[in-house]
Design a protein around this nucleic acid. Sequence first.
DNA 1: AACTCGTGGTA
DNA 2: TTACCAAGAGT
Length: 328
Amino acid sequence: MDATAASLLLDHHARNARDLPWRTSPRDPYRTWLSEVMLQQTTVATVTPRFLRFVERWPTVEALAGAADEEILGEWAGLGYYARARNLIACAREVALRGSFPRSEAELRKLPGLGAYTAAAVAAIAFGEDAVAIDTNVERVAARVFGIADRQAAGEAARGWFPEGRHGDFAEALMDLGSAICRPKAPNCAACPISSACTAFALGTPEAFPAPKVKKERPHRFGIAWWIRRGGDVWLVRRPAKGLLGGMAALPGPEWSDQRPTVNPVAIHRHGFTHFTLDLMVVPAAEPPEGEGWWQDLSHLGSAGLPTLYRRAAQAALAAEREPRLAA
DNA sequence: AACTCGTGGTA
DNA sequence: TTACCAAGAGT
């Protein structure tokens, strides 16, 4: 894409930019950072309501830095990729300690949770630096415009597109284009402002670019979740700070296994993770196991901060209590 | 460099 | 139902 096509894209974006709650005027570094971290591997539709809850509860990075870990992890529950929330907490406290966000891509890159993309995005969007933010949208658009199959190579080739002094606007223009028009499936080339500069469009096979990712097989694993009732409460625990669902509230249970356990569950909840499928057997137990935990009021289970796996497993157990014959 | 790490929407 | 994949980062 030449300077003319880049200009066409910026004009199109000026007229069609989505009105998103983190696009304030002027841009707020806190909102820019928070939204970019939430948007890592997560759709705008999913992020928007969660972002609004976060900024209502914690309007500034100082407020967020002052919150307890469990409060923030609980507010993140259901968003997935919980290392992001742990890094969010560490980053907020580091920023609060130093007084403000660093303003350069290089310094932002040193903060926890800010990788190559996010550091460049915050630098360009919030601080106006000419940093190049290459995300999966930019890679896909570039793969099609250049007719390059390789995602990463296409992304590198797109670096030359970014107009001087407008790197933030241009990154957002490319991302909006990628989500609304140059979609992975069924791209709407008829509405694309730069189709005349697009190799894949000229070839008539836009969906052929970029090359599909190689798929790995997803193994099956098994787990047990103890379902321990006392009156209107259920016993919950906090998972270890690192690893899968690290630091999150959970139903207690032993480590997951490759072998199906021989138990008598009231419910079996199947849950798909990125790299394996889990069958979680929910098994009634009389007493809490050794170790820390708390009784959670079942009428407030929705605000218990449970990740989706355990929220759904608990729902299945409750449904089985009401309709035992429909269990599992 | 390959693997880990969630979830929901869409076709 | 299955498969794909989204504003990636950390190790």
